[in-house]
Design a protein around this nucleic acid. Structure first.
Lengths: 357, 357
DNA sequence: CTGAAAGCGCTTACAG
DNA sequence: CTGAAAGCGCTTACAG
C-alpha cells in the first residue's frame, strides 16, 4: 500500500479557516460578492499553508465539466512517431488547449474493437474529442457522429461523415502541381498514390485527375500505381511505371516517403532526375530537403490544422452547438530540384497513346 | 447550452433491472460470488439496452484511482515535433500504458511557472507521472522529488535528483566513438556539445573526455564548441573549430542536427568528409541517412525508453513503493560514411600542441 | 446472494 | 456575506 500522506481536502481548509466549505469554494473561484475580504484573506492563508489543491475529479464531477480534450488516434500506428504529422497536429492541439487551460488526454483506438474507444470517450472524462488521422473507414467516425460528445476531425474524412473537420486542401495542391507540370510541357504524367484507405490519398489523386482531364489528357492506367505511403511502395511503384511504354516523364507521389523511394531506385537505374523524369512529393518531410536532388514537394500546415481543430472543438464545447463546416488549409508548393521540363525526345505535344485495354 | 441527452447512470440501470446500485456495481466488475447468475444476466441486458457506460470520474473518485498516467513536458518546446525523440518516447509510454489499460494525460509545464504544473499533477487526476525530456534545471524535478506522487523520468536527469530514471547510456556511446576514432589514428578530436542545460549534453561530453584522457590526449579548448543542439550551432561551431591551428581531424557532435549543420558548411568550404575530417552525430535522425555523405551516428532506443519508463512507473503505482534505480539503455553505433582515418598530412602520432592559453 | 448507507471531494442553489 | 444541504455518479464495507 502507498502510504502517501493524504493531501488536504476542502473540508480541512474550511475547518482550519473557521468557515464553511461553501465559503472556501466561493473564495477559491472568486465569486464576486460572496465573501468578505477578511474571509478571503483567511482562506487563502490556510490554502497556502496547507498546500491545498482542489481535487480535479471531484470538481469535474460536480460541475459536469472536465476541461479536458480527448485526442483519439488509431492504436496500431506508432501514433506520434510513425508519421511526423501526427506530432505536429498534436502539438497544435496541445498549444490551443493549453492556451485555454484545457488538458489533453490521448485515447488510442484498438484496431479490432473500435467500440472500446467509446468507453474512454463517452465516460464523462472529456468535454470533447479530436479525431486525428483516422483511416477513412474507421468506425469511430460513425460512432462519434451519432454520439452527442462534441467532436472535430483533424485530417481527412469521408465526405459522407457529418462532422466538422480541418484538413489540408490537397485536391487543390495536386491539381496545381499537375497544371504546373503540364505548363512545363509534360503530357505523360504518372502517379504513385497513397494508401487508398486514407481519404487524403484519394483526394490527391482526384486533384491529379482534375488537372489532367481539364487539359484534355486521358489518364493512362499503366502510369498509375497504387502505393501505401511507405518508402517501399515508392520503389516498387516507380519500377512499374518505368516499364510502361511510353513511360511517364513526370510522376506525382502521394507523399515524400514514396517519392524518396522512387528517387533511390531512379538513381540506381541511372535515370536522371529531373532531366529524364520529374518527381513531386507531398509532405515536405525533413529528409526531403536533404536528399539529392532535393525533393520538390508540398508543405502542409499540420500544426495549424491541430490548432484550428482544437479551436473548433473548444467553440463547440463552449457554445454547446454542433458546428458543421469543413476548414481547408492550403498546402504550399516547395520548389526544389526534382522538377524540370520533359526530355526533348518525348516531344511535349505528341498525344499519349493509351497503353493497356 | 448543450442539450445532450444525459447518458444513463448506474442508478437508472439498477432501477430498470430491479436491483440495487450495489448489485449493479458488483456484477459490472465481476466480484465473484456477489450475485446470482440470473441477476447478472438481467443487469447486463439492461446495460446493453441502455448503452450504459460507467462514469470514469465518479469511479475514480470513489476508488481513489484513476488509471491515468501524466506525461509532463516543457511547455515552450513544440513538445512532440520539436524533437523526433519526444514522439518516440511518448509512443513507448502510450504503448505500455495502453497495454495495462491505463490512459495518458499530457501536462505541459509553463516555463515561467513550474508550480502551476503541480496543479495538474497533484490534483488526483493521475496515478503517477512520467517526466520527459525536461531541462536539467527544471524545478519540476525537485517538486516531484518531494511530492508523494509516483514518478519516473524518461531522459536525462541531474545525478543529484533522487528519482528513478530511464535514459540512454550516452557516456558509453561517446566514449566508444572517441576510442574508435583514436584507433583509426585520430589524435585531434574536437567536439561540438549540445545545450549544456540538458544533462545529456554534459554526459556526452563526459564520455568524450574519458576516452581522450584514457588515451593520454589532453583536450584542447580550441577544439571545443558549446552548441545548443540546433542546426545553426553546428554551422557556427564547425567554422570555429576549423580556425583552430592545428585543426581537428575528427569532430564528435552532440546530435545529428548540429552534425548536419557542420556537414553543410564543410561542403561549402570544400573540406571533404571523411577524407579531410571525420564527423560523428548522435540520434540517427531520419535525415542522417539521406544526406550525403550519410552520417555516422548513434541510434537511441527512445521507444524503449518510453516503454521502460512507463513500466517502472506502473510498477511503483501498483506496488505502492518508490523505486530508486536508474536504467540505462545502450545506444547503437550506426556506421555510415562520415568517418575515416585522419588525412596522412596530419601524421597520426604527432602530439597535439595546445592552442590557446 | 442482496441492499441501505456512508463516503469519495467538490459545487451550487437556497435560506437566512 | 455565510452555511446547511442536496447532489454529481460511483464504490465499499457491513448487516441481513
Amino acid at each position: 500500500m502507498r502510504t502517501a500522506k493524504k493531501s488536504p481536502t476542502i473540508r480541512e481548509v474550511a475547518e482550519a479557516a473557521g468557515v464553511s466549505i461553501s465559503t472556501v469554494s466561493n473564495v477559491l473561484y472568486g465569486k464576486q460578492g460572496f465573501y468578505s475580504p477578511e474571509t478571503a484573506q483567511r482562506v487563502w492563508a490556510v490554502v497556502e499553508q496547507l498546500g491545498y489543491r482542489p481535487n480535479r475529479l471531484a470538481r469535474s464531477l460536480a460541475r459536469r465539466r472536465t476541461f479536458t480534450l480527448g485526442v483519439v488516434a488509431e492504436r496500431h500506428l506508432g501514433f506520434v512517431s510513425h508519421n511526423a504529422y501526427f506530432g505536429l497536429i498534436l502539438d497544435g492541439i496541445l498549444h490551443e488547449a493549453t492556451e485555454h487551460e484545457y488538458q489533453v488526454k490521448i485515447v488510442r483506438v484498438p484496431a479490432d474493437n473500435p467500440e472500446k474507444a467509446m468507453d474512454y470517450i463517452v465516460d464523462g472524462s472529456v468535454d470533447g474529442v479530436a479525431l486525428v488521422a483516422l483511416f477513412a473507414d474507421n468506425p469511430v467516425l460513425r460512432l462519434m457522429e451519432k454520439s452527442d460528445v462534441p467532436t472535430v476531425v483533424a485530417g481527412s474524412i469521408p465526405p459522407t461523415v457529418k462532422l466538422p473537420c480541418v484538413d489540408v486542401e490537397d485536391i487543390a495542391a495536386t491539381y496545381q502541381a499537375v497544371r504546373w507540370l503540364i505548363e512545363l510541357g509534360h503530357r505523360r504524367i504518372g502517379i504513385i498514390t497513397g494508401d487508398m484507405r486514407q481519404w487524403s490519398a484519394r483526394r490527391r489523386e482526384q486533384g491529379y485527375l482534375m488537372a489532367l482531364r481539364e487539359a484534355g489528357i486521358e489518364p493512362n492506367p499503366s502510369w498509375r500505381f497504387e502505393g501505401d505511403y511507405r518508402i517501399e511502395s515508392g520503389e516498387v511503384g516507380i519500377v512499374q511505371l518505368l516499364r510502361a511504354d511510353p513511360r511517364p516523364t513526370a510522376v506525382v507521389c502521394g507523399n515524400d516517403k514514396m517519392a524518396i523511394g522512387a528517387l533511390h531506385v531512379l538513381r540506381e537505374m541511372g535515370v536522371r532526375v529531373p532531366e529524364d523524369i520529374s518527381i513531386i512529393g507531398f509532405d515536405d518531410s525533413e529528409e526531403s530537403a536533404f536528399i539529392s536532388p532535393a525533393l520538390t514537394t508540398f508543405r502542409q500546415p499540420m500544426f495549424d490544422i491541430g490548432l484550428k481543430a482544437a479551436e473548433l472543438l473548444l467553440q463547440q464545447i463552449e457554445t454547446g452547438t454542433r458546428l458543421q463546416h469543413n476548414l481547408l488549409l492550403p498546402a504550399e508548393l516547395v520548389v526544389r530540384q526534382t522538377v524540370a521540363p520533359p526530355p526533348p525526345s518525348y516531344g511535349s505535344f505528341s498525344s499519349a497513346p493509351s497503353a493497356s485495354r
